[in-house]
Write a protein that binds this DNA or RNA. Structure first.
Lengths: 103, 103
DNA sequence: ACAATAAGTCAAAAAAAGATGACTACTAAC
DNA sequence: GTTAGTAGTCATCTTTTTTTGACTTATTGT
């Protein structure tokens, strides 16, 4: 493993940091869906064919931790939790759309 | 799990496809450098601290195969090979710059 | 009490990405 | 013919991501 101490490598392209926030199999799709309406766990699970709870949970957690989604707990009968795009999350949407147009 | 046989998973966000083309530790940086001048293997190796031949070779190969870079062999004394941004590669640059501005 | 829905967690296995070391092919200079 | 420079390849190992199965917590309905 070569446990190196000092700070080595780290490709330092500034776009890299933002790319990492949306990297992953489900994150771009989840962000795209979040534009239309607040997201819920079970509804994502139904919508994203081929996904599973763990994948959704991990993606939502990371998107929340990196500040692209905000989690809102709604204390009601069946217990609802909603995820909203943050300001930064919204800022990302047009960029994702431009990527689509290049492809 | 719900192992459905028909066509499984594949997150079908259109931006995903383009994101995959620039995914990886070195690709965004390489594209960024390609804007300034044609790229050469050994010069990339020197410029990208923390990289190695295999990483550079793999990145260049993938960027070429996906049509973002074009490889040009220059038969001269020490054998030169240059990589140029394609039209699609160029189209990606402003999008990468926008990503930086969000971060 | 028991099952169902919603929203997860934990651990482990499998697959993909990244890192490391040794080796190849061509030309050119000495 | 040995050394040096450029541009790689191949096999292996490690790390990270993704997938899979089993279990948890809370509330509602019967």
């Amino acid at each position: 493993m070569t446990t190196n101490n000092s700070n080595e490598n780290e490709a330092t392209c500034p776009a890299q940091a933002m790319l990492k926030l949306v990297a992953g199999k489900w994150k771009p799709e989840i962000l795209r869906l979040a534009v239309e309406q607040p997201l819920r766990f079970s509804s994502l699970l139904r919508t994203l064919k081929g996904s599973n709870k763990q994948a959704i949970a991990a993606a939502l957690k990371e998107l929340e931790e990196t500040g692209l989604l905000e989690k809102v707990v709604i204390k009601q009968k069946p217990l609802h939790i909603e995820y909203y795009l943050t300001k930064q999350g919204h800022a990302l949407i047009p960029v994702l759309q431009q990527l689509e147009n290049i492809g």
